[in-house]
Simulated scan of single mutants.
Amino acid sequence: MFFSTKDTGPVADAVKQHWVDTRLPVWARPYARLARWERPIGWWLLLWPCWWSAALAAIASGSAFPDPYHLVLFLIGAIAMRGAGCTYNDLIDQDIDAKVERTRSRPIPAGQVTRTQAKIFLVLQAAIGLAVLLQFNTFSIILGVCSLLPVAVYPFMKRITSWPQFFLGMAFSWGALMGWAAAFGELGWAPVILYLGGISWTIGYDTIYAHQDKEDDALVGVRSTALLFGNRTKPAIFGLYALATALFAVAASLADAGPAAFAGLAAGAIHLAWQALRLDIDDAAECLKLFRSNAAYGWLIFGGFVVDAAIAAI
């Protein structure tokens, strides 16, 4: 039953002629689309807070580089749990996805997989995530399990609040706590402030993303910060990104970071300002491009932290 899928074609907003649609066996393509394997930006956005936190922990501990083993575990975990989260969201949002032009071609509403098949796939991905989590210390394991709460409630928030992006931020930024906890077996103010900054950053970039669907969302009754901010989105993005940058700087200070870390944050701030300046909320393609550019932003912050740790350890 698991292999009896139906390939009705790629998802409307997916990258055209991607390896998922051209190289995978036909039966596997719907599962890859469920996990969004053809769109790595999702797991990058989940991964960055983990790697930033691990790099801040290296600075605070005097290490020359974040623990490579932890970085690899976070990478595997981010890919697995992002896929599991997308599968879970698609199960919850089947009725909404079927009414929205950009999402009605997703595997579940398009009939490529059954709900039972999607649930089995969800469990398999979650099992990989659990296997990764069990490699860390006990405190990190407990902390990681706690992350399931914001993950579980997020898909329902668009039905009851105009701030579903806040709850997405709580889920996607959890790694800001995990990297530090994996290194020290406890939390401190630096990772907590990093987490709060991650929430602000997430609200910003996902508001940009949500502008792609604002007309359909309004018709089907789905709420978002894109609809809430409306024509005030550009100043709202500036404010959210400024807050995120300020909180990241405070977190770096609390970890005793040096000039290289703040240089990375400054470069990142320029990138975020570019996003806000370029934003055209009525240009869906531009919104998607700006959203995806946050992968590059992550490298700027991580690079600054890593270089700073290396310099401090000399």
Rank of each mutant, 00 (worst) to 15 (best):
A273T: 14
N231R: 15
A131T: 08
A190E: 13
A260R: 00
W44Q: 00
D97W: 07
M170P: 00
I301G: 02
A80C: 13
A257H: 01
G304C: 09
C50F: 08
E186D: 15
A12S: 13
L279E: 06
V123T: 15
D90L: 04
W189M: 12
M81I: 08
A284I: 02
R232A: 15
A126D: 03
D256A: 11
I128N: 13
G77A: 05
L243I: 13
A152H: 07
A32D: 12
A261G: 05
T103Y: 13
V20C: 13
R292I: 00
A183C: 01
A60L: 01
R159S: 03
I270F: 13
G62L: 06
D93Q: 07
A309V: 05
C146G: 15
L73V: 04
F2N: 04
V72Y: 03
A181N: 06
E186P: 00
G204F: 02
F184V: 01
W48A: 01
P68C: 04
I281A: 05
F262E: 02
G204T: 03
I59C: 09
T245W: 10
A14D: 15
I193G: 09
K158V: 01
S140D: 05
P66I: 06
S253I: 03
E186Y: 09
I314T: 13
Q135L: 11
G144Q: 08
I76S: 12
A55I: 06
L122H: 07
W27E: 05
P66E: 04
F184R: 03
L290T: 07
L75M: 14
I96V: 11
F291R: 06
K119R: 13
S224N: 09
P107G: 12
L134H: 05
Q165F: 00
W274V: 06
F74G: 05
K214V: 11
S63T: 01
W274P: 00
D280V: 02
P235D: 11
V222Y: 13
Q212I: 10
E215P: 01
A118T: 12
A152T: 11
G198Q: 04
R223V: 01
P259E: 07
I199S: 10
F302E: 03
V192S: 05
W48G: 00
L91A: 08
T245N: 04
L133Q: 10
F172D: 06
V11T: 14
G204E: 04
I311H: 11
V220H: 14
L71A: 15
K289N: 01
L219M: 13
G144F: 06
V220M: 11
H18M: 00
F305R: 02
A260C: 07
Y241P: 06
L272F: 01
A78S: 15
A267M: 13
E38P: 00
Y205L: 06
T8K: 15
R115Y: 00
M1I: 05
A251Y: 10
L46Q: 11
